[in-house]
Protein backbone atom coordinates (compact mmCIF):
# COMPACT_ATOMS: atom_id res chain seq x y z
CA UNK A 1 0.00 0.00 0.00
CA UNK A 2 2.72 2.47 0.91
CA UNK A 3 4.54 1.50 -2.27
CA UNK A 4 1.40 2.27 -4.25
CA UNK A 5 1.17 5.73 -2.72
CA UNK A 6 4.87 6.46 -3.06
CA UNK A 7 4.96 5.53 -6.74
CA UNK A 8 1.69 7.32 -7.52
CA UNK A 9 2.84 10.51 -5.84
CA UNK A 10 6.24 10.34 -7.48
CA UNK A 11 4.68 10.05 -10.93
CA UNK A 12 2.08 12.71 -10.10
CA UNK A 13 4.82 15.06 -8.98
CA UNK A 14 6.58 14.57 -12.29
CA UNK A 15 3.37 15.44 -14.11
CA UNK A 16 2.99 18.61 -12.12
CA UNK A 17 6.64 19.63 -12.50
CA UNK A 18 6.37 19.30 -16.25
CA UNK A 19 3.24 21.43 -16.22
CA UNK A 20 4.68 24.35 -14.28
CA UNK A 21 7.79 24.32 -16.47
CA UNK A 22 5.58 25.28 -19.41
CA UNK A 23 4.25 28.74 -18.53
CA UNK A 24 2.36 29.02 -21.83
CA UNK A 25 0.37 25.96 -20.91
CA UNK A 26 -0.49 27.42 -17.51
CA UNK A 27 -1.55 30.78 -18.94
CA UNK A 28 -3.48 29.26 -21.84
CA UNK A 29 -5.50 26.87 -19.75
CA UNK A 30 -6.52 29.52 -17.26
CA UNK A 31 -7.13 32.33 -19.75
CA UNK A 32 -9.30 30.35 -22.16
CA UNK A 33 -12.17 29.48 -19.77
CA UNK A 34 -11.92 32.94 -18.23
CA UNK A 35 -12.51 34.57 -21.60
CA UNK A 36 -15.25 32.07 -22.33
CA UNK A 37 -16.95 32.95 -19.09
CA UNK A 38 -16.64 36.73 -19.48
CA UNK A 39 -17.75 36.83 -23.12
CA UNK A 40 -20.63 34.40 -22.82
CA UNK A 41 -21.60 35.91 -19.48
CA UNK A 42 -21.72 39.40 -20.95
CA UNK A 43 -23.54 38.25 -24.06
CA UNK A 44 -26.28 36.29 -22.35
CA UNK A 45 -26.70 38.59 -19.37
CA UNK A 46 -29.70 40.40 -20.84
CA UNK A 47 -31.64 37.38 -22.07
CA UNK A 48 -31.08 35.08 -19.09
CA UNK A 49 -34.40 34.97 -17.20
CA UNK A 50 -35.12 31.37 -16.20
CA UNK A 51 -38.18 30.74 -14.03
CA UNK A 52 -37.53 30.48 -10.32
CA UNK A 53 -34.01 31.90 -10.55
CA UNK A 54 -34.66 35.58 -10.08
CA UNK A 55 -31.73 37.47 -8.73
CA UNK A 56 -29.20 35.08 -10.29
CA UNK A 57 -27.13 36.77 -12.97
CA UNK A 58 -25.90 34.71 -15.90
CA UNK A 59 -22.32 35.31 -14.86
CA UNK A 60 -23.16 33.76 -11.53
CA UNK A 61 -25.17 30.92 -13.03
CA UNK A 62 -22.43 30.11 -15.47
CA UNK A 63 -19.63 30.41 -12.89
CA UNK A 64 -19.73 26.82 -11.50
CA UNK A 65 -20.30 25.62 -15.06
CA UNK A 66 -17.03 27.18 -16.14
CA UNK A 67 -15.31 25.66 -13.13
CA UNK A 68 -16.66 22.30 -14.17
CA UNK A 69 -15.42 22.91 -17.69
CA UNK A 70 -11.97 23.76 -16.38
CA UNK A 71 -11.80 20.62 -14.25
CA UNK A 72 -13.14 18.50 -17.07
CA UNK A 73 -11.02 19.80 -19.90
CA UNK A 74 -7.87 20.39 -17.91
CA UNK A 75 -7.90 16.91 -16.45
CA UNK A 76 -8.83 15.14 -19.67
CA UNK A 77 -6.42 17.12 -21.81
CA UNK A 78 -3.62 16.62 -19.32
CA UNK A 79 -4.07 12.89 -19.47
CA UNK A 80 -3.32 13.13 -23.19
CA UNK A 81 0.33 13.29 -22.10
CA UNK A 82 0.20 9.52 -21.79
CA UNK A 83 0.52 9.46 -25.59
CA UNK A 84 3.60 11.67 -25.41
CA UNK A 85 5.02 9.56 -22.60
CA UNK A 86 4.74 6.50 -24.78
CA UNK A 87 6.20 8.17 -27.87
CA UNK A 88 9.08 9.70 -25.94
CA UNK A 89 9.88 6.38 -24.28
CA UNK A 90 9.31 7.36 -20.66
CA UNK A 91 6.31 5.07 -20.31
CA UNK A 92 8.14 1.87 -21.23
CA UNK A 93 10.58 2.48 -18.38
CA UNK A 94 7.66 2.72 -15.98
CA UNK A 95 5.95 -0.36 -17.39
CA UNK A 96 8.98 -2.59 -16.82
CA UNK A 97 9.41 -1.34 -13.26
CA UNK A 98 8.12 -3.52 -10.41
CA UNK A 99 5.17 -1.26 -9.67
CA UNK A 100 1.47 -1.92 -9.37
CA UNK A 101 -0.38 -1.11 -12.57
CA UNK A 102 -2.83 0.88 -10.49
CA UNK A 103 0.04 3.12 -9.41
CA UNK A 104 0.78 3.89 -13.06
CA UNK A 105 -2.84 4.96 -13.58
CA UNK A 106 -3.04 6.86 -10.29
CA UNK A 107 0.22 8.68 -10.93
CA UNK A 108 -1.14 10.12 -14.14
CA UNK A 109 -4.63 10.72 -12.77
CA UNK A 110 -3.51 12.47 -9.58
CA UNK A 111 -1.02 14.55 -11.55
CA UNK A 112 -3.69 15.66 -13.99
CA UNK A 113 -6.17 16.33 -11.21
CA UNK A 114 -3.71 18.54 -9.38
CA UNK A 115 -2.95 20.45 -12.57
CA UNK A 116 -6.67 21.01 -13.13
CA UNK A 117 -7.15 22.01 -9.49
CA UNK A 118 -4.52 24.74 -9.66
CA UNK A 119 -6.22 26.32 -12.64
CA UNK A 120 -9.66 26.05 -11.15
CA UNK A 121 -8.55 27.41 -7.78
CA UNK A 122 -7.09 30.48 -9.45
CA UNK A 123 -10.52 30.96 -10.97
CA UNK A 124 -12.17 30.58 -7.55
CA UNK A 125 -10.74 33.99 -6.63
CA UNK A 126 -13.62 35.50 -8.65
CA UNK A 127 -16.27 34.09 -6.29
CA UNK A 128 -16.48 37.04 -3.87
CA UNK A 129 -16.99 39.45 -6.77
CA UNK A 130 -20.15 37.57 -7.65
CA UNK A 131 -21.42 37.85 -4.12
CA UNK A 132 -20.75 34.17 -3.51
CA UNK A 133 -19.19 33.74 -0.11
CA UNK A 134 -17.90 30.29 0.68
CA UNK A 135 -17.73 29.24 4.30
CA UNK A 136 -14.95 26.88 5.35
CA UNK A 137 -17.25 23.85 5.28
CA UNK A 138 -18.52 24.71 1.82
CA UNK A 139 -14.99 25.27 0.55
CA UNK A 140 -14.03 21.78 1.72
CA UNK A 141 -17.09 20.37 -0.04
CA UNK A 142 -16.19 22.27 -3.19
CA UNK A 143 -12.61 21.00 -3.14
CA UNK A 144 -13.90 17.46 -2.71
CA UNK A 145 -16.12 18.02 -5.73
CA UNK A 146 -13.11 19.18 -7.74
CA UNK A 147 -11.00 16.20 -6.72
CA UNK A 148 -13.68 13.63 -7.51
CA UNK A 149 -14.46 15.23 -10.86
CA UNK A 150 -10.78 15.50 -11.69
CA UNK A 151 -10.03 11.89 -10.79
CA UNK A 152 -13.03 10.52 -12.70
CA UNK A 153 -12.39 12.45 -15.88
CA UNK A 154 -8.59 12.17 -15.88
CA UNK A 155 -9.12 8.44 -15.63
CA UNK A 156 -11.56 8.63 -18.56
CA UNK A 157 -8.96 10.57 -20.53
CA UNK A 158 -6.33 8.00 -19.62
CA UNK A 159 -8.58 5.18 -20.73
CA UNK A 160 -9.31 6.80 -24.09
CA UNK A 161 -5.77 8.00 -24.71
CA UNK A 162 -4.10 4.69 -23.89
CA UNK A 163 -4.97 3.02 -27.15
CA UNK A 164 -4.57 6.09 -29.35
CA UNK A 165 -1.62 6.70 -31.61
CA UNK A 166 -1.79 10.45 -32.00
CA UNK A 167 -2.81 13.41 -29.94
CA UNK A 168 -4.84 14.87 -32.81
CA UNK A 169 -7.23 11.92 -32.79
CA UNK A 170 -7.63 12.43 -29.07
CA UNK A 171 -8.60 16.07 -29.54
CA UNK A 172 -11.16 15.18 -32.19
CA UNK A 173 -12.79 12.47 -30.09
CA UNK A 174 -12.87 14.63 -27.02
CA UNK A 175 -14.55 17.51 -28.80
CA UNK A 176 -17.29 15.31 -30.23
CA UNK A 177 -17.81 13.41 -27.02
CA UNK A 178 -17.10 15.79 -24.19
CA UNK A 179 -18.56 19.06 -25.45
CA UNK A 180 -22.13 17.68 -25.73
CA UNK A 181 -21.88 16.06 -22.32
CA UNK A 182 -20.82 19.34 -20.82
CA UNK A 183 -23.51 21.35 -22.66
CA UNK A 184 -26.23 18.91 -21.61
CA UNK A 185 -25.10 18.96 -18.01
CA UNK A 186 -26.79 22.24 -17.17
CA UNK A 187 -23.50 24.09 -17.05
CA UNK A 188 -24.35 26.44 -19.91
CA UNK A 189 -28.13 26.79 -19.44
CA UNK A 190 -30.62 25.37 -16.93
CA UNK A 191 -32.33 22.19 -18.00
CA UNK A 192 -35.53 22.96 -16.12
CA UNK A 193 -38.05 22.82 -18.94
CA UNK A 194 -36.49 20.20 -21.13
CA UNK A 195 -38.43 17.22 -22.52
CA UNK A 196 -38.54 13.98 -20.55
CA UNK A 197 -36.09 12.21 -22.88
CA UNK A 198 -33.56 14.93 -22.30
CA UNK A 199 -33.98 14.55 -18.55
CA UNK A 200 -33.04 10.91 -18.82
CA UNK A 201 -29.93 11.80 -20.79
CA UNK A 202 -29.10 14.27 -18.08
CA UNK A 203 -29.58 11.72 -15.37
CA UNK A 204 -27.26 9.30 -17.10
CA UNK A 205 -24.68 11.99 -17.81
CA UNK A 206 -21.87 11.83 -15.26
CA UNK A 207 -21.01 15.43 -16.07
CA UNK A 208 -24.42 16.62 -14.75
CA UNK A 209 -23.74 14.97 -11.43
CA UNK A 210 -20.28 16.49 -11.26
CA UNK A 211 -21.89 19.88 -11.88
CA UNK A 212 -24.28 19.39 -8.98
CA UNK A 213 -21.52 18.60 -6.50
CA UNK A 214 -19.55 21.62 -7.70
CA UNK A 215 -22.46 24.09 -7.82
CA UNK A 216 -24.25 23.15 -4.60
CA UNK A 217 -21.47 24.17 -2.12
CA UNK A 218 -21.74 27.76 -3.35
CA UNK A 219 -25.28 27.95 -1.95
CA UNK A 220 -25.48 25.49 0.93
CA UNK A 221 -23.37 24.43 3.87
CA UNK A 222 -22.16 20.87 4.48
CA UNK A 223 -25.00 19.97 6.89
CA UNK A 224 -27.67 20.79 4.34
CA UNK A 225 -25.79 19.07 1.51
CA UNK A 226 -25.09 15.84 3.34
CA UNK A 227 -28.78 15.52 4.24
CA UNK A 228 -30.00 16.17 0.70
CA UNK A 229 -30.80 13.02 -1.31
CA UNK A 230 -30.24 14.89 -4.59
CA UNK A 231 -26.73 15.88 -3.62
CA UNK A 232 -25.94 12.47 -2.16
CA UNK A 233 -27.09 10.74 -5.33
CA UNK A 234 -24.82 12.93 -7.42
CA UNK A 235 -21.96 12.39 -5.02
CA UNK A 236 -22.42 8.62 -5.23
CA UNK A 237 -22.63 8.69 -9.04
CA UNK A 238 -19.46 10.80 -9.27
CA UNK A 239 -17.57 8.46 -6.95
CA UNK A 240 -18.83 5.40 -8.81
CA UNK A 241 -17.81 7.00 -12.10
CA UNK A 242 -14.29 7.66 -10.79
CA UNK A 243 -13.95 4.11 -9.49
CA UNK A 244 -15.24 2.67 -12.76
CA UNK A 245 -12.85 4.71 -14.92
CA UNK A 246 -9.89 3.93 -12.66
CA UNK A 247 -10.72 0.22 -12.73
CA UNK A 248 -11.08 0.14 -16.51
CA UNK A 249 -7.85 2.08 -16.96
CA UNK A 250 -6.01 -0.33 -14.73
CA UNK A 251 -7.36 -3.30 -16.65
CA UNK A 252 -6.23 -1.61 -19.85
CA UNK A 253 -2.67 -1.13 -18.58
CA UNK A 254 -2.62 -4.67 -17.30
CA UNK A 255 -3.56 -6.08 -20.67
CA UNK A 256 -0.44 -6.95 -22.58
CA UNK A 257 -0.39 -7.27 -26.33
CA UNK A 258 -0.59 -10.96 -27.13
CA UNK A 259 0.48 -13.03 -30.09
CA UNK A 260 -2.26 -15.02 -31.82
CA UNK A 261 -2.34 -18.78 -31.91
CA UNK A 262 -1.88 -19.38 -35.61
CA UNK A 263 -1.06 -17.43 -38.71
Amino acid sequence: MSALIRVSLSLAKREFTRFIRQPQRVIGTVAQPLLFWLFLGAGFAGSFRPAGMEGVSYLEYFYPGVMLMMMLFASIFSSITIIEDRDAGFLQGVLVAPVSRLAIVLGKVLGCTSIAMVQTLIFTIAAPFLGLNLGFGSLVMLLMGFVLTGVGFSALGFLLAWGMKSTSAFHAVMMVFLMPLWMLSGALFPLGNVPQAMKLVMLANPVSHALIIIRAPFYYGPQVLLADPHYLTSLAVTIAWAVLCLGLSMARVNKRERGVAAA
Binding site: V7, S10, L11, R14, T17, R18, A88, G89, Q92, G93
Partner: peptide
Protein backbone atom coordinates in the same frame (compact mmCIF):
# COMPACT_ATOMS: atom_id res chain seq x y z
CA UNK B 1 13.15 5.96 -21.07
CA UNK B 2 13.97 9.19 -19.28
CA UNK B 3 11.94 12.35 -19.08
CA UNK B 4 13.87 14.88 -21.11
CA UNK B 5 12.13 17.81 -19.45
CA UNK B 6 13.33 16.82 -16.01
CA UNK B 7 16.82 17.11 -14.60
CA UNK B 8 19.20 14.20 -14.20
CA UNK B 9 18.61 14.18 -10.44
CA UNK B 10 14.82 14.24 -10.86
CA UNK B 11 14.93 11.33 -13.26
CA UNK B 12 17.06 9.30 -10.87
CA UNK B 13 14.70 10.14 -8.02
CA UNK B 14 11.66 8.89 -9.94
CA UNK B 15 13.51 5.72 -10.83
CA UNK B 16 14.42 5.26 -7.17
CA UNK B 17 10.76 5.67 -6.22
CA UNK B 18 9.68 3.13 -8.83
Amino acid sequence: AVDKHLSVAENLAIHGDL
